[in-house]
Design a protein around this nucleic acid. Structure first.
Lengths: 143, 143
DNA sequence: TGTATTTTTGTATCTTTGTATCATTGTATC
DNA sequence: GATACAATGATACAAAGATACAAAAATACA
């Protein structure tokens, strides 16, 4: 498990607990004490160590996740974010948006979709993205 | 065994793993890449490939089974059951397209692209596809 | 062949993990 | 004091994993 045995919470400092957790994990990542792929303690483990509600730890983890520092995975655990290897980063940069787009259209075509169908699906999403800055989240589907 | 060597799981997407499996198998059936009678990998094989618990694969298979797309047989294996009716095929295509599109936009966003940039790239390609029926060849991609 | 045993396959159940929602508490502001 | 809001806690839930099991197939052996 992640080496977070030395986290210290000051309950009287006036600074929220979840921010104290966030700050200290950030420092450990910055200093290299925590490396990509390292697993952090579960929200319940860390909460028990710190004598704190696990939702408070979950809140800290959520912030760090949104900041891209860690990756929390439902049912699996929480990990320091794995930076893509330099090669794949380079590949992505080189291939870029056009390549990504070609592949997307090819996959859509293989599904048997027409250009019209693709346009009808992607245009609203693009519009929404442009206006709200939000990407559509996958909705749960049922059968 | 079934050709599921190219299934890709994104552990950070927020979409449950079992749904990612379901979605990609549905797409392969809809596109004809998987045909009735084809045997799928066993739950343990696929789980090992994807680095996932086999119960997660079993859950995906169960959903597909309940949807009538595959037939899982205790002690024997799992097989594609039938090509869905045209209506369900259409539904699958639609959902698959939406799923593909979300992934595409997410990847574009990760590249740092804006909605405008994406539109500027994809619209000409769509236009050309609509008019000439041709779409640019994607170069092979791995990751 | 026929049968026993082992292996391979999917299933059932429970535990562990993170998430969502609401309730409680403290604090600031009026 | 009253109200609003932020921080924390309580509870219920969902996703994923661990373990033990059952059914079918494969194998060994007489």
């Amino acid at each position: 498990m992640g080496s977070l045995n030395d986290l210290v919470i000051d309950f009287r400092s006036g600074q929220p607990i979840y921010l104290q957790i966030v700050e200290q994990i950030r420092q450990k990542v910055a200093s290299g004490e925590l490396k990509p792929g390292d697993q952090l303690p579960t929200v319940r483990q860390l909460a028990a160590e710190l004598r704190v509600n696990f939702n408070t730890v979950a809140r800290a983890y959520r912030l760090l996740d949104e900041a891209g520092l860690i990756s929390t995975q439902h049912g699996r655990g929480t990990y320091i974010w794995e930076t893509p290897s330099p090669e794949t980063l380079q590949t992505i940069r080189q291939q870029g948006l056009e390549s990504l787009t070609r592949r997307y259209l090819a996959q859509a075509a293989q599904l048997g979709c027409t250009a019209e169908e693709v346009a009808k699906v992607i245009n609203p999403m693009l519009e929404r993205w442009r206006e709200s800055g939000e990407l559509p989240k996958p909705e749960p589907q049922e059968f």
